[in-house]
């Protein structure tokens, strides 16, 4: 017994090392596996408030740029509004109340954002109290941004499109082919468009938008433009690079998409899959 105790005491540093490593690995793995159960991230209130203070100071120096961007977005929205009001199709549209206001957009400010890692996360200043839930989509004036992962009372963090686990159901406007957009961790301006079959006609410059096939993003949100098309031997799909429409290094205002019919659609999908 005494020998055993002496042995344990002698190698105590090694044992502590193993213990600490096991804890770390467990945290790393469980944090990746389960959504929204962990408080060990930037939505933690102490961390979030500190981050907010830091970011507010930094933001002060970029007010000019932010103003210009907002003005641009205003102009764009005004243009779209006018076009919509005078378009023939709008007047002929059969009215379906529940579909017309299916999506609610909740404006949120970016508190912290990273682009340099493979798993980039964006911290937003809206949380549970504003009706945010895990899984909601995040869009910006220039297009798709990401999806909410963690939510605390006043903050939420979203996995960016620049996160190698993010997959976005996408649609090629040329002929309506459905594919998946995923980032490969290399260039912050370029993502891959996957699962587009080789027989589909496609050209550089084609527009890629969201498909609306799930309750995360509405249909027709901009993702980017086809930049490079490659065909590899013995592969049934194209290898396509798309230039992302959103510039992720200076994100500022975003909108969190709340799909009011999301639960209904999801439950229907679950039933039909069973």
């Amino acid at each position: 017994m005494r020998g055993l105790l002496r042995f344990i005491y002698k190698y105590r540093a090694f044992e502590l090392f193993i213990l600490l490593e096991v804890i770390s690995v467990w945290l790393l793995v469980s944090n990746n596996r389960y959504y929204n159960v962990s408080y060990l991230n930037t939505t933690n209130s102490v961390v979030a408030t500190t981050n907010q203070r830091i970011f507010n100071t930094q933001k002060y120096f970029s007010l000019q740029e932010v103003n210009e961007k907002l003005a641009q977005e205003n102009a764009l929205l005004r243009e779209q509004l006018t076009r919509l009001l005078y378009s023939e199709s709008y007047r002929k549209l059969p009215v379906n109340d529940s579909l017309l206001d299916r999506y609610e957009l909740i404006p949120a400010k970016v508190e912290r954002n990273s682009t340099a890692k493979n798993h980039n996360i964006i911290l937003l200043d809206k949380g549970k109290t504003h009706g945010i839930e895990s899984g909601m989509g995040v869009v910006g004036p220039q297009g798709v941004i990401g999806q909410i992962k963690y939510v605390s009372n006043n903050f939420s963090s979203a996995i960016s499109l620049l996160h190698t686990d993010t997959r976005i159901s996408s649609l090629l406007t040329r002929d309506g082919t459905i594919g998946t957009t995923q980032w490969d961790g290399k260039d912050i301006g370029i993502a891959k468009l996957k699962y587009i079959p080789r027989h589909v006609p496609i050209a550089e410059g084609d527009t890629v938008i969201t498909s609306g096939f799930n309750s995360v993003f509405p249909e027709g949100i901009m993702i980017g433009y086809v930049q490079r098309i490659d065909v590899k031997k013995n592969e049934s799909f194209y290898d396509i690079d798309i230039a992302l429409s959103t510039s992720f290094h200076n994100l500022n205002m975003t909108y969190i998409v709340k799909d009011k019919l999301g639960a209904e659609i999801d439950s229907l999908t679950t039933i039909s899959e069973e």
Binding site: I23, V25, W26, N41, T42, V47, N51
Partner: peptide
């Protein structure tokens, strides 16, 4: 060891990368 673990933990909280810095620092 403990201080390495703690430093990694705090940096991970701020970087949204829980576990990564903890493992490497320890």
């Amino acid at each position: 060891l403990l201080l390495g673990f703690a430093a990694g933990f705090v940096i991970d909280l701020f970087g949204d990368s829980i576990g990564v810095h903890m493992i490497s620092c320890t």
